[in-house]
Nucleic acid binder design. Structure first.
Lengths: 241, 241
DNA sequence: TGATATTTTGTACAAACGTACAAAACTCGA
DNA sequence: TCGAGTTTTGTACGTTTGTACAAAATATCA
């Protein structure tokens, strides 16, 4: 059998691929070994345990990705125009999640899909990592958005950042849904297009005025309402704060 | 027929809970039996296999949820004002995903979280069901949105519906992230608040003009731009259509 | 009630799981 | 070329897995 010069890398790559498409528990160490062309025992040798392997995948990607995010964020904050700045901020958050600056091509998207799957499975191993590693970066983005949209409550920005991350995750998890529902007119696996659509959608969402709870309640009570000119963010803010 | 329907129901409920929080493969039949206070063998008796149990959960919820969605959609389409109609359409899609009209309280949210997890795990059993059962309903919503926003290409609506579903899923999967990032000011598990935030965000996203690729390219080339008044949906439409 | 149908239980089994570990096969400076 | 260090291999272990099945328990209805 041909020996792989860097078996450790092959194992990491195979594990990334299989975990990100099938979840953690559905993939056995033997599956990974087969995909990587390695012996099951050598996985134990390199990473000690299955959890250790998953942990190593995270360690490999988190640093470079969030570093790139922060670099792009610093540049984005310098953009003069508010609209452009907001778009640049969102793009700085989204883009590194699709294509990491690190070694492998498309590795960024694969790792982000892995994060989505682990998040859905409620994986205990990565639970702490997410809060420890990602929250700092996320907070920096929230603050940047706060600065550009000072009228918007922080809680609303948090909600919309949640929606952004969910949209990001799901786009990588189920791209075929976009292709199917668009009847082939769009390609859900087209990452460049996904980024553009996601950025545009998120910027518009962020620019909308805050949810007004009292107003919303009254609007549901009497659905007929003086006609609005169908411009988003039109509703006046008279929130509780 | 069923002499003691309680046990069957208890198994279904326990499986729903465990699957939706831990994934499919991480939960064993013995785990479910323990949670339901049943014997492992009785699960095989009622549902034949583990896959059969998962399938039965879907059969139980899909019908009522999508029926409710269609009822609300019909009502939403009758709303006169465009802004209000759009909001009603989005709400008709979102609301039944959080609280089903069926028996158990909060069962809707639990089932939607289950769908999110199965989607992330790429579960083969439910793969076909989703396309078969959900696409009809989703298409009805896309058409309703198309009707309210005739200037928007269908592909863009599909992308934004993808983002909506992803946001919906992730909100149910990781509500604690909202609580954490908002430093306790918001409660990610507050479903009513989540719905309001999600609806407002999505309506604003839908009302944004289409992504213009050429324009976007030029805007990135020369970042200085006539200042926008930071009102969502303000940008003029000069799309390709 | 007794006969029959339905549900629950306990146990068993083959397969797959994560992991450990010794032997074998490599690598590479001296 | 040699030998120490590193990596890979093969195998074996104790568990846990999904499922099957017969016996026991329970419910239904003449």
């Amino acid at each position: 059998m041909t020996r792989n010069p860097n078996m450790r890398e092959a194992i990491l790559s195979a594990a990334e691929l299989l975990f990100s498409t099938n979840g953690f528990n559905a993939v056995s160490i033997r599956d990974i070994a087969l995909e990587a062309g390695a012996n099951p025992g050598s996985i134990t040798y390199h990473f000690k345990s299955k959890d250790g392997l998953l942990l190593e995948i995270y360690k490999r990607h988190c640093g470079p990705m969030n570093k790139r995010r922060m670099e792009l964020l610093v540049a984005a904050r310098r953009v003069r125009d508010v609209q452009d700045r907001l778009e640049a901020i969102v793009r700085a958050y989204v883009q590194p999640a699709f294509s990491s600056s690190s070694d492998l091509a498309g590795g960024g998207a694969r790792f982000t899909r892995l994060r989505a799957v682990m998040s859905a499975e409620g994986n205990a191993v990565v639970g702490r990592i997410i809060a420890e590693i990602f929250d700092d970066t996320t907070n920096a983005f929230i603050e940047a958005i706060e600065e550009s949209l000072p009228h918007l409550p922080r809680t609303t920005i948090v909600w919309r950042s949640q929606f952004l991350l969910g949209a990001l995750y799901y786009t990588l998890v189920s791209p075929e849904r976009v292709t199917r529902l668009s009847r082939g007119e769009a390609d859900g696996a087209d990452m460049a297009e996904a980024i553009e659509q996601l950025v545009a959608s998120t910027v518009a969402s962020l620019q909308a005025s805050d949810v007004d709870h009292l107003d919303t309640a009254s609007r549901r009570a009497k659905p007929t309402q003086p006609p609005a000119k169908s411009v988003a963010g039109k509703r006046k803010e008279n929130s509780t704060s």
